[in-house]
Amino acid sequence: MKRKHRRLMFVLFALVGLGAATALVLTALEENIVFFHSPTDVAEKDLPAGRTIRVGGLVVEQSIQKQADGVTVAFQITDMAHTLPIVYTGILPDLFREGQGIVAEGELRADGVFAAREVLAKHDETYMPPEVADALKKSGHWKETDGTGAEQ
């Protein structure tokens, strides 16, 4: 009985210690685990220009402008606190549209515009049929969820 008891205590302590150590490491590495930065991060944290980073936010309504060459688009993303202008040349994912959460990978230019090399679409955790979405929008019960999951 006594040895079993000792083994139980050992396993419990080992698990608690391991959990605490993991939590510390993950907290220390937070900056590296975060997949993208919000426009607020870009505005306030003074991220280095010219280094590859990812930014994420909602595409601002009516901000999408096709450039003359037909393949370059300029748009803005927002986290409701700050907005960030983005230019991108290439194919956009199916879900890219106004109000959609997106993540862009690229570099911050010196003029404050984010030059994206890749644009990924994010979707939120809500799933429903199109008719239900239409009905919600008509009845005014539609709530725009922040699809980016960034700090709200």
Binding site: V34, F35, F36, G56, K122, E125, Y127, G149
Partner: peptide, 18 residues
């Protein structure tokens, strides 16, 4: 963390978003 993957839809506070 900020992830590309969306948060939980079924096992979440406030009931499923499906």
């Amino acid at each position: 963390w900020n992830t590309l993957h969306q948060p939980a839809s079924v096992l979440k506070l406030g009931g499923p978003a499906i």
